[in-house]
């Protein structure tokens, strides 16, 4: 238990260190529509790991660590990386395709929303239906955000506009990926 906690702490420290280091290269890593369309496709993934300023980074880093801590015993590292790779790409592609007026985007929160909803769906299926409360809460949150945005409200952090569409896309992507995975697994089980 103690060894696992130490490993977790080291992992968390490395993650925060990586975010801080990447911050120095934000100009070439963030989601920038023009640059992506010009061929800098790495921004589809890396845009989620850089932030506009220190407060933005702090908020998302604390949230990421808190979420990891909440779900730590139920997450395996390989799944975390592979889902991270998949979700970051998918969120960026949707932003690129459905929001042509969005010129640039950065930040981890879209990805965190995707992770949260995906893990909740998995845990509802495998462990406890009470995790449904978390899923309902996150869906309610993003729908409320979208409704407020539709009414003209624009959230900001130190002058940076919060792109709530990324949260919504994250929840949609996370939920439907998990549901899709479970359905395909069920079909595979039935056919075997």
């Amino acid at each position: 238990m103690l060894a696992a906690s130490k490993a977790n702490l080291v992992g968390v420290a490395l993650f925060i260190l990586a975010l801080c280091v990447l911050q120095n290269f934000a100009a070439v890593l963030e989601f920038d529509r023009q640059q992506i369309l010009a061929g800098q496709v790495w921004r589809l993934w890396t845009g989620h790991f850089v932030h506009s300023h220190a407060s933005h980074l702090a908020l998302n880093a604390i949230s990421a660590v808190a979420l990891y801590w909440i779900f730590a015993p139920r997450i395996d590292a390989f799944a975390l990386w592979s889902y991270g790779f998949f979700f970051s790409f998918l969120i960026s592609i949707v932003l690129l395709g459905l929001y042509p007026n969005l010129a640039w985007y950065n930040g981890l929160s879209g990805l965190l929303h995707a992770f949260f909803s995906c893990i909740c769906v998995h845990l509802i299926h495998t462990q406890n239906r009470l995790y449904g409360v978390g899923l309902v809460a996150v869906w309610s949150k993003v729908l409320l955000e979208m409704w407020r945005a539709h009414g003209g409200y624009q959230g900001e952090i130190e002058g940076m506009a919060i792109i709530i569409e990324a949260h919504f896309i994250g929840v949609v992507v996370g939920t439907f990926t998990a549901v899709g995975y479970l359905i395909s697994k069920r079909i595979a089980d039935l056919s075997s």
Binding site: H56, L59, N60, A66, W69, I70, N101
Partner: peptide, 26 residues
């Protein structure tokens, strides 16, 4: 109007809630 850019961020109250929950579980 019609042009935007920004970041994805969670706001302080939610971050505090998550952090509190994480500490409690820990």
């Amino acid at each position: 109007e019609g042009y935007s850019g920004g970041g994805g961020a969670l706001q302080w109250p939610l971050v505090m809630l998550l952090a509190g929950l994480a500490l409690l579980l820990g």
